[in-house]
Design a protein around this nucleic acid. Structure first.
Lengths: 192, 192
DNA sequence: GTCTATACAGCGATAGAC
DNA sequence: GTCTATCGCTGTATAGAC
């Protein structure tokens, strides 16, 4: 599978020869199906988008409760990990295919406003402390998305050692200091 | 300058021919001074390390106050930006030169324990709220370093539009919700 | 559709004259 | 030291037989 090759060895190091060999077909044949390497990357990217889309839990009118949000985020992390080239190698890929950069930027901007709306709801419901400024709430939403986008970028994530659920919990630790002390305690237990 | 070429066009796209041309010398001559491309990268990396080292403000026994910390972080961001290939293209570079990965990992681990010690001091001094757990304090230190390592990775940082001081302030917003309400207000003014 | 063969450009790196 | 010339290799992509 070309996905694994790219993930493991890097987009710039994997050639069409490698991919053809892995697939058990000739290089000429590969170029018949995919005119070039970029087309291959684009296909993988749209695969990821559909995977992420189909993993979305139906929100409808009701916002998710913390437990559901954790599950949903775990699913997302799983998908992101299997397509981790788009996060770990974003610089290389964005330089080759600026459209992918644009789509990803837009995607995460949308996610950010969704999460901002959710946080503001939490605040209205009184789960957040009153002294938290609107500016700081925006910052929290920004940080949340930033973490999702970058978690694979620096750390050596090894799915055998640490579970995706663990990283999802770690992510939600961002919220803790914003909550009322009692609410904070119960959340912290949930996230341990 | 090879640094600018790598920063702008990507390590995998810049060849020894490009660099030689930019320097106004022949390719053969370049290979006389730097036996290969990796050696060139290693030199740039150690340049960055010395730049970061010389920018360290003398801490000695006294911990820095918030204002000094902001200035120090602004300096660091400036240096990191001029050597941004090592952050934006970390995946490519780490694959070529695993030693660089190890040194960077170690560097940021050290920074993390330093910042953890500082936070714990703040907590002891009563600037932090009591209900913040030790686990959460560790998390804050981790987040702080994570942000420093990754800030260049996702965003299009444009030094003409937004100042380095702005990003330093943004970084310290991580601390705000951990502080006592009154302390929080004064810090927030500082960070605006 | 799938294959083999090959074209053609670009890469890092070296040889050898000066 | 610095140059030109070139090697050997690998990259993407295409041509043409089956």
């Amino acid at each position: 599978m070309s996905l694994d090759l790219f993930n493991r060895s890097g987009v710039e190091n994997i050639t069409t020869r490698h991919i053809a060999k892995e697939l058990g077909i000739s290089q000429g044949n590969l170029h018949y199906h995919y005119p070039n390497k970029d087309k291959l990357l684009e296909t993988l990217f749209s695969d990821m988008l559909t995977a992420l889309k189909s993993a979305e839990r139906i929100i409808e009118d009701k916002p998710l409760d913390p437990q559901q949000m954790l599950l949903s985020m775990t699913d997302n992390f799983k998908i992101m990990y299997s397509y981790r080239l788009f996060f770990q190698q974003n610089d290389v890929i964005w330089r080759r295919l600026p459209e992918i950069k644009e789509v990803m930027t837009l995607l995460f901007q949308t996610k950010q406003s969704e999460i901002l709306a959710l946080i503001e709801l939490y605040k209205k419901e009184g789960k957040f402390r009153e002294e938290i400024s609107a500016r700081q709430v925006e910052f929290l939403a920004e940080q949340f998305i930033f973490n999702i986008q970058s978690w694979l970028n620096v750390k050596d994530y090894n799915p055998d050692k640490v579970s995706f659920a663990y990283y999802a919990k770690l992510l939600f630790r961002l919220w803790l200091p914003y909550l009322h002390p009692t609410e904070m305690k119960t959340w912290e237990k949930l996230l341990d």
